[in-house]
């Protein structure tokens, strides 16, 4: 990884790439505060209704959640290796790894979609048809509100990441000197992708496991 100092002599009209790197880190800070506030809402609701949230989190399919976490960790690994490869200038290798990461992201969305579908069939989607036999069904519905907002917003961010990675993958496949002209693009996409993975790393236990099994 070239340190920012080496990249100093950049052509001024492309923004100095070490600025983009700093800009992405600041952007990730704002995203962290956004997700942090949402997770705070979830945990305050958990403080107010511990019993209902425990029963509700048992309704989720924790095996799918674990699989999804593994998928995202593996895609983060591929992304890290892709960033290393682009640093060394191997453009073909980089684009393959980028496309692999993107497809793992799509796999995550597929597993998530199946989960959503099964919850939809069980009438657990918090609209008017929401039905839950046990006690405090209003608070279980509240849990599913939080669940769908958190995982939904994460899925949207993941989709952006997939589009970004596949775009970069194709671009660096098509023109080998892509990463020399924009050395920072893959680096920033990597930062964003790892951040989205970190968000899921926190969401998974808070939503699926904290009820204990």
């Amino acid at each position: 990884m070239k340190t920012s100092a080496e990249r100093e002599g950049q052509e001024p009209d492309i923004p100095n790439d070490s600025n983009i790197n700093l800009g992405i880190w600041i952007f990730l800070l704002t995203e962290a505060m956004l997700f942090g506030a949402l997770i705070l809402c979830y945990s305050v609701m958990r403080i107010l209704h511990p019993a209902a949230f425990n029963t509700a989190s048992h309704l989720l399919d924790w095996k799918a959640g674990t699989l999804n976490t593994a998928i995202l960790l593996f895609s983060s690994f591929c992304m890290a290796v892709a960033v290393r490869a682009s640093g060394k200038g191997k453009s073909k290798g980089t684009s393959v790894l980028l496309l692999v990461s993107a497809s793992l992201g799509i796999l995550f969305l597929a597993v998530k979609g199946m989960e959503y579908h099964s919850e939809w069939l069980k009438y657990l989607f918090p609209n008017d048809e929401f039905t839950f036999a046990g006690p405090d069904s209003a608070f279980v519905k509240l849990f599913f509100n939080a669940y769908f907002i958190l995982t939904g917003l994460h899925a949207i961010h993941l989709t952006f990441g997939i589009l970004w990675l596949s775009g970069l993958g194709i671009a660096s496949w098509v023109s080998p000197q892509f990463h020399r002209r924009y050395p920072n693009a893959i680096d920033c996409a990597g930062l964003y992708w790892h951040f989205v993975d970190i968000v899921w790393v926190f969401l998974f236990p808070l939503l699926y496991l904290v009820g204990g099994s």
Partner: peptide
């Protein structure tokens, strides 16, 4: 682990290091 190794936290200069701590 992810921030330290995958996101190459150490390679950044003082400015980039400030923002994860700030978050």
């Amino acid at each position: 682990l992810i921030i330290r190794f995958y996101m190459n936290f150490r390679a950044g200069d003082r400015a980039t290091k400030l923002f994860p701590y700030l978050a």
